[in-house]
């Protein structure tokens, strides 16, 4: 690792953090393709690094949401009780999954997210009241944990619909509570990667510093730039990235 590659990684992290923050998505969807397609990292190493990057950005977001009083801590730790187990299982299982299959799974997720981003997130209007379907929410959260650890994502793309659509949680609370949970999930899921030597601390550190600084800039820029056009353009870019990852996995 040279000083120059450290610089490139920090710049990559900064760019990812800026766009992820402006688009309201987790960094994982961008970190893994950037590291694999542009910087030629093996996908398992990219996933390990991504999980550390995602945990840093989501912990930062969670601290802001907690301060604003948007996180339902009790709901968060209830769902996390199964998500954390899923993350542990996912982290272990990922060691046995071939890189080609990981490319294919990740590409499906990226293409799905690009469609969601193009169309706009479907939100169920919920008035504050009693949440429902706890058992289904806890059960599905397990799979969100597995997906998070296997693919190196935060899993907000799964957790928010589970809470909002299935459990009748208002979307603002769902987004904030999901951010609160992601830090715990990602850190638990990354441990098996650390043991297998697939989460290089130097690479992860450069990405973390970049994404944290970028997220700060992105949250400021968000108010000045029309996000709808940016969202559509980014959906197209994600679609192309998804197709490239799919081809790489074939």
């Amino acid at each position: 690792m040279t000083s120059l590659s450290l610089f490139y990684l920090t710049i990559a992290g900064f760019t990812i953090g800026t766009f992820a923050s402006m688009l309201g998505i987790g960094g994982g969807l961008l970190i893994v393709p950037t590291l694999t397609l542009f910087l030629h990292f093996p996908i398992k190493h990219a996933i390990g690094v991504s999980l550390i990057g995602v945990s840093a950005t989501s912990l930062m977001a969670a601290s802001n949401y907690l301060k604003a009083g948007l996180v339902d801590v009790e709901l968060g730790i209830t769902l996390e009780s199964s998500t954390i187990l899923g993350a542990l299982v996912g982290g272990i299982v990922s060691g046995y999954i071939s890189s080609r299959l990981l490319y294919l799974l990740f590409s499906i997720l990226v293409i799905y997210t690009s469609f969601v981003m193009w169309r706009g997130r479907r939100v169920k209007e919920v008035r504050n009241g009693r949440y429902s379907n706890y058992s289904a929410g806890i059960g599905l959260s397990f799979f969100a944990g597995v997906a998070s650890a296997v693919l190196g994502i935060g899993g907000g793309v799964l957790k928010v619909p589970i809470m909002n659509i299935m459990m009748n949680v208002p979307v603002k609370i769902a987004v904030a509570t999901s951010s609160f949970m992601i830090g715990m999930t990602a850190v638990t899921g990354v441990m098996p990667y650390v043991e297998r030597g697939e989460a290089d601390p130097v690479v992860a550190a450069s990405i973390v510093v970049g994404t944290l600084a970028g997220a700060y800039l992105g949250s400021r820029l968000m108010r000045k730039i029309p996000t709808l056009m940016l969202r559509k353009a980014f959906a197209l870019l994600l679609f192309i990235v998804g197709v490239r990852m799919f081809v790489k996995g074939l």
Binding site: L59, S63, L66, K67, G69, V71, V73, A205, L212
Partner: peptide, 24 residues
């Protein structure tokens, strides 16, 4: 509880940021 949790997370993250930056 939420405010204290927020403070704890901020302290840890800022410390990590400073340590990593000095590492770079």
């Amino acid at each position: 509880m939420e405010k204290e949790l927020s403070k704890v997370l901020k302290i840890i993250l800022y410390s990590a940021f400073v340590v990593i930056l000095s590492g770079i």
